[in-house]
Nucleic acid binder design. Structure first.
Length: 194
DNA sequence: CATGGGATTGACT
DNA sequence: GTCAATCCCATGC
């Protein structure tokens, strides 16, 4: 994954990240669910403009944006678009590939589909914390790799984002069809393939 | 300086 | 289905 990959419209990056591999040290998983956030809509933190919290979002692409949600969970995003534009892709779910036992120890759970099936869960499983905010995804320790050789691109489902109250109508959530690791059941009436 | 609101999860009714 | 936990940060006095 090079910097140009991230320096594109954030919705395109969110779509293309499904199938890629998120890695931190010995733990890695295939991305099966993403959401796009852009400064132009109010659900995005960058919508309020340049602040201490959002300056990473407005910085160069291919950096990690990690923040704490509900006082408890760390959520991992990849900063996108050109420097000066506030936008990022939230990684919402992975299918675990490597380091399963370490993930199980961190999560206190056994079943693979329970380890990374949510944005807070995957951050805990991969030990991604606030200290990783602003780290470069091209230089590690956190990196996003191309899909594995032989990995078959699944059908992609598109729908509205989860857990937000503002701009909830935008269809900026992308899921790999059929994955048991997706974070929430899909609303039946809104199902749509791309 | 005080306050309020989350891009969530897990436990419980 | 409901609900509390718990911390960071933006906002407003």
């Amino acid at each position: 994954m090079n910097r140009d990959f991230y320096a594109r419209p954030v919705v395109a990056v969110a779509r293309d990240l499904v199938g890629c591999v998120l890695r931190h040290g010995p733990c890695a998983g295939t991305i099966v669910e993403t959401e796009a956030y852009h400064q132009s809509e109010p659900a995005c933190h960058a919508h309020v403009g340049l602040t201490g919290r959002t300056h990473i979002l407005f910085g160069p692409p291919a950096r990690a944006y990690v923040y704490r949600s509900y006082g408890i969970h760390a959520l991992f995003n990849a900063v996108c678009e050109e420097e000066g534009v506030g936008a990022a892709v939230l990684v919402r779910a992975l299918e675990p590939l490597e380091g399963l036992d370490l993930m199980r120890a961190r999560r206190g759970l056994e079943r693979p589909e329970d380890l990374c099936s949510g944005p807070g869960k995957l951050a805990q499983a991969l030990d991604i914390e606030l200290e990783h905010n602003g780290t470069d995804l091209l230089e590690g320790p956190i990196a996003i790799e191309s899909p594995l050789p032989g990995w078959e691109a699944p059908e992609l489902l598109v729908g509205p984002r989860i857990g937000i109250t503002k701009a909830a109508e935008l269809p900026w959530r992308f899921c790999a069809a059929g994955s048991r690791s997706v974070s929430k059941p899909w609303p039946a009436g809104l199902r749509e393939t791309v």
